[in-house]
Design a protein around this nucleic acid. Structure first.
Lengths: 341, 341
DNA sequence: CTGAAAGCGCTTACAG
DNA sequence: CTGAAAGCGCTTACAG
């Protein structure tokens, strides 16, 4: 292994000079800098990450904690990871990806051993058990998803309340008066997936404000159960003209369900979902949807995190709680209802 | 930050004794070991990863290089990553996930700075440009996917030739005499996705051996283009009674295509794919398929890699090239053909 | 069974 | 503008 000592010898300077020549942290004569760079090239030197981490107390690595729950739809997760990963790289950081089920011990391991300079948490629950660990850690943290208590971390999330209102109003404005909202499985809510009821509560309230009817239901997150469940829901709610889908698996199953029941969108039913454009493409979903912007949210979280790591955000600067405003991507799956209820 | 020095002082022993007490690398009196463990607990000590890496020349981290190509189906990738990640954790390793498009420079960065003890490569191409870098590195490497030259690395892949033969024979045995194989987009092949033509060549050859007709076609990897393409293919091949699908996106699009054309499986068409069971569930695919076993392959790669890292495999021990035998998961989508050609 | 010391490969005040 | 030295927090031969 070639070390900075080898480089220094080859260039005929001291190790400190070699180090400074490479970091640029103090002025170096043009000639020496050149000799050092030359030596680096001929020897094929690159600094040892562990040694540098030890000396600087920085690893240039970010811990990314993601969990793949059986009742959450895996393809939807992937995009958050990609968003985080891409932006991190742009900022010069690598990603330590942890997917183990015991997030608390994983988080403790990464932070207490100083493997990482900061933490990004995905699948954040209302009362996330990883949060106390994260707050106790020396490293800063950024979350995608909003917990009940946002103290001590930067938080980024879609504005699910606004999303719920927007979905209701969009259909209301078209003339719909009887709606059905299909959410993630109840189990997600119980685990603390607060966004589910955040969207739902806001939708229910908005329906009340508008004076229209909105029924709500949970549906499984796995195929093929979800398809069957959605079919049964449509059957049980014959008067519904507008369907809101806050459940990726249900959205993915919907084309088949509609086919089977001989229904056409938006002629027989207006549909509006909540998922990303990438997700829509992957599953060929022809439904208008509130864009969930996973890559954008992941990227924002990393950027805020790196700002804290690098001290551009003061240690006492207030933490951010940022809501991304929902945007409706129109794919033509909504129209005025054919029949009035 | 609490160091091993603090632990030693608290326990009233030397730093080396504290270290040995924790590592168990030499015998320690029961009493001292107890005092050290007590000190660790009261101080909340955990070793600094960078310092340990520097002293031991081991990071207990594995680099995982994955690329998300536009023309490969992202949900299919995810499972390899999960397989690698889960097994790595079981073996006590963390995963540094790299998804950047320039795999060569990423690989160089990870290996030359000694951030990782070994490398797992996904999306391996026939002439993968990352391989020369990997061979030149000090760390061992394991691949999921077989390149033309397997020297210097451990290789794990599905036996795509056997898969092709098996798919043909399965339909042949049922009485089919006119088949169509839909593969990944030609672009994947051009980039070096050799498994595509490996399966195809073997299928073509097997059809020749059996004396039956097998047409081949490429299809896009994105929705909705792939659905349209598959529909047109079925139209252009009216005599076909058996469809082989080596293209995840095409498989995912198929239910809709069949619906649109009013075709029933297996009454009007027998279908056999090549994808994982998890993938089948995610997309509700009712088609029998050769299991692509992504988690198993990923896990095998990590296990072999760790064996090399930890020196259980000698440096000169021959490298492994392991083919997983294809297994057909029967979902009832094949039957004897209704009409003879 | 235990301790004092060297060394892993960097960075960065301190001195000139 | 440059060098000698200390220090980051570990592990592990060396000595007893």
């Amino acid at each position: 292994m070639v070390t900075i000592g080898d480089v220094a010898r080859e260039a005929g300077v001291s190790r400190s000079t070699a180090s400074y020549a490479l970091s640029g942290k103090r002025s170096i004569s043009e000639e020496v800098r050149h000799r050092v760079e030359e030596a680096v090239r001929t020897l094929g030197y690159s600094p040892n990450a562990g040694a540098r981490a030890l000396a600087t107390a920085r690893t240039r690595t970010i811990g990314l904690l993601a969990q793949f729950y059986d009742d959450e739809f895996a393809p939807a997760m992937m995009q958050y990871i990609q968003g985080v990963s891409n932006v991190a790289r742009d900022l010069g950081y690598d990603i330590l990806l942890v997917t183990e089920s015991d997030g608390r011990s994983a988080l403790r391991r990464l932070t207490s051993t100083r493997m990482v300079d900061g933490i990004v948490l995905l699948n954040v629950a209302e009362h996330d058990e990883r949060l106390p660990v994260l707050r106790a850690a020396a490293q800063p943290g950024a979350l995608v998803g909003r917990p009940a208590d946002c103290a001590g971390v930067d938080v980024f999330d879609l504005d699910f309340e606004e999303a719920g209102r927007q979905m209701v109003d969009h259909l209301y404005d078209l003339g719909h008066r009887q709606l059905l909202l299909v959410s993630q499985p109840e189990h997600v809510v119980e685990r603390g997936g607060a966004y589910v009821w955040r969207l739902q509560n806001a939708a229910v309230e908005q329906a009340r404000v508008r004076g229209i009817r909105l029924d709500t239901a949970f549906a499984p997150a796995r195929q093929p159960e979800v398809g069957r469940a959605v079919g049964e829901l449509l059957q049980a709610h014959p008067g519904v003209t507008g369907l809101l889908v806050n459940n990726e698996a249900a959205a993915a199953a919907l084309p088949t369900v509609m086919h089977e029941r001989g229904l056409t969108v938006p002629r027989d039913l207006s549909v509006i979902g909540r998922y990303s454009d990438e997700f829509a493409r992957t599953f060929s979903l022809p439904y208008s949807a509130i864009e969930s912007a996973p890559d954008r949210l992941g990227g924002m979280a990393v950027r805020a995190l790196v700002r804290r790591i690098e001290g551009q955000t003061g240690h006492d600067d207030p933490h951010i709680v940022h809501y991304v405003s929902p945007e409706l991507v129109d794919r033509g799956s909504t129209a005025a209802p054919r029949r009035r209820t």
